[in-house]
């Protein structure tokens, strides 16, 4: 192969996203006659997301699967993708990340940090609450130490939902729950299942407070160094593989939740209105008021 792309992801090989990356690898090899080879590094082997973004920024041929929060330091608009109750379901979020507005963000990103998103339609599921007590509304979360990633949008959302946000590394979550260092965690189902959190929590409450959409981000300079038709092939296949992976995610969530229920976990659908109302102020808090209105208008079309 004349060209090589090294894709890093924090996820493991059984995750639907990884299956999507494998499909991307195979399709791209097929379409370019093996000229563009893709290697996948699961489990963050090439480094933390920020490290790999830095490698891409320095011009290395690496890409990484990241959520919008990681890019918000370069282009703040990306941060809104992690906002509470922004969308419902994959179709709505796909509409946002394939819109002209998103293309404009992507262009801004290239100018700001030299990154480019090949596609941003890699859906990892809705984030729900995993607790050791039943939850029906914000009042039930008072005093609950809930692990969340430490980015402002997550912290403020969890605080608005009534819990005490407690940031810590994902690898420490299982022992921390087991030893009651924390009381609860919020996560998308595939990640929660992969970390065997059903062993250390008893209730899965489907608040769906954040829809976790991620993208495949790489070095713009490296993409520009590819022949034009290879660039097109890579972007098209990346979008197709993202749809494929998101579909797998949707299917797997149904199966995984059934399996968790059979392992003794109480899986509850609740009326999310109280949480939706409690978190409405987060957009204003983070300066996304206008952007939220634009997105709402776009989704209403």
């Amino acid at each position: 192969a004349s060209y090589e792309l090294n894709i890093n992801t924090a996820l493991t090989t059984d995750d639907p996203i990884y299956k999507g990356l494998e499909r991307l690898r195979d399709r791209v090899a097929e379409r370019t006659g093996g000229e563009l080879a893709i290697r996948i590094f699961p489990g963050s082997q090439l480094g933390k997301d920020e490290d790999v973004l830095e490698q891409a920024r320095a011009g290395a041929n690496v890409a990484v699967v990241v959520d919008g929060g990681r890019l918000a330091v370069f282009v703040p608009e990306f941060g809104v993708l992690g906002g509470p109750y922004l969308v419902s379901g994959f179709d709505q979020v796909r509409k946002i990340v394939t819109s002209p507005m998103f293309d404009a963000w992507n262009a801004k990103l290239k100018a700001a940090s030299g990154h480019t998103a090949l596609s941003f339609n890699w859906w990892q599921g809705d984030r729900n609450l995993l607790t050791n007590r039943a939850v029906t509304g914000p009042a039930d979360l008072a005093g609950v130490r809930m692990r969340t990633p430490g980015a402002p949008v997550w912290m403020e959302t969890i605080r608005a939902m009534g819990a005490t946000p407690t940031p810590m590394g994902w690898a420490e979550v299982y022992p921390a729950l087991q030893q009651q260092v924390i009381d609860a965690v919020e996560a998308q189902t595939p990640a929660a299942y992969g970390a065997r959190l059903y062993e250390v929590t008893s209730h899965l409450t489907k608040t769906a407070h954040i829809s976790l959409i991620t993208g495949l981000v790489t070095s713009a300079a490296w993409v520009d160094s590819l022949p034009a038709e290879m660039q097109t092939a890579l972007k098209e296949e990346s979008l197709a593989a993202g749809d494929y992976a998101s579909g797998l995610t949707g299917e797997s969530i149904v199966a995984l939740e059934a399996d968790m229920a059979s392992k003794g976990m109480t899986v509850t659908e609740i009326d999310v209105t109280p949480f939706r109302e409690a978190t409405a102020g987060v957009y204003e808090l983070l300066g996304y008021t206008e952007l939220k209105q634009t997105i709402d208008a776009m989704l209403a079309e």
Partner: peptide, 19 residues
């Protein structure tokens, strides 16, 4: 040929950032 030498510095720094 594909990884810039400055990433060597990144690897030194990032190794220190493990809890």
């Amino acid at each position: 040929s594909s990884i810039p030498a400055s990433i060597g510095v990144q690897q030194i720094a990032t190794t220190s950032q493990s809890f």
